[in-house]
Amino acid sequence: MDLRMLLRPGAGQILPGVANAVSARIAEMTGFPAAFVTGAGVANSFLGMPDMGLLTLTELVGHVAAIREATNLPLIADGDTGFGNALNAQRAVRLLERAGANAIQLEDQVFPKRCGHFDGKAVVPQVEMVQKIRAAADARRDESFLIIGRTDARAIEGLAGALDRAAAYQEAGADLLFVEAPSSLDELAAIPRQVPGIHLCNMVFGGKTPLLPASELGAMGFAGVIYANAALQATMRTVVDVFAHLRDTGSLSGIDERLASFRERQAIVDQPGFFELDARYATLESKDGL
């Protein structure tokens, strides 16, 4: 499905965060129509490091390419700050579009950035981010590739400053807007009301923004609701529990319900499909006498 059709004001479409190809397969299997490739999730799971601008563009591009191989879902790539200035942002757009992303999210933090729900963030001047958005829009090969303008200015300039930035980014060419880390229900509701456009929001378990159901956020006017690291947090909790149980008991007995079965695991990675391909080409080789 085309992201422009999916992400309409008020749709409240859930966008699950995926950090790797297997989580993208699960997102597709469970019926989601699109996914968000989370930079924080890739940094945490691939590097074992916090979301502090440590992930490189080429590392992210490799993950997006692997995820694209595993799923047909439209993918929003978390492009952080564009990995530098306007020219870096242009390169990020071109590489991520070529890797199979359907959209890029760009934010106005200084480089290196921090997770949007960390303290101690800083943002670049508004005019600098406006130019970055313009450069990103100019760089795309396909007009259906979407540019998402994210601002983290709520923590630095207050909500009014963040909304001014969102409006400026929209005027500069951002197709969608994302005001990160509003801190109250009133602030959430004000975002799509005061800056008409196509808005995303981010529900972070343990973060700075109140958690609301996607249906209520849609009623406020949000087009998409990102659950960037719900899967990663669930995985971390489960791995800690299973490893602790295994360490203490030397057995999986008593915790086996926390594990996917062998058959479920193979179904998720499409083992039957790969076995079918293997058999097809083995038969061709036999017939050709190779």
Results as ranks from 00 to 15, higher is better:
D175G: 01
A162P: 01
E180K: 09
A162L: 04
L6M: 11
A101D: 01
D119Y: 10
V239W: 08
D142A: 11
F46R: 14
P125H: 12
L60S: 08
I67Y: 00
V179T: 03
A89Q: 05
D2H: 12
A65S: 13
R237F: 01
D152W: 06
A19K: 09
H117K: 09
L246V: 11
L96T: 10
L7N: 05
L6A: 13
G206P: 05
D138C: 07
D108L: 06
N229H: 09
P74A: 09
V225L: 10
A155M: 07
Y227V: 05
P125C: 06
A172R: 04
G48M: 10
L6H: 08
Y281E: 13
N202T: 01
R4Q: 13
Q266V: 10
L95Q: 15
K287A: 15
V110S: 06
T151N: 06
F36H: 05
M1Q: 12
R150A: 06
Q105F: 02
K121V: 15
Q109R: 10
L252S: 08
D142K: 12
N229I: 02
V269Y: 04
G62F: 01
S215I: 10
G149A: 03
G82W: 00
L188G: 04
G289E: 00
Q170I: 04
F145G: 06
D138E: 15
D186C: 03
A34C: 04
L3A: 13
L252T: 14
T238Q: 12
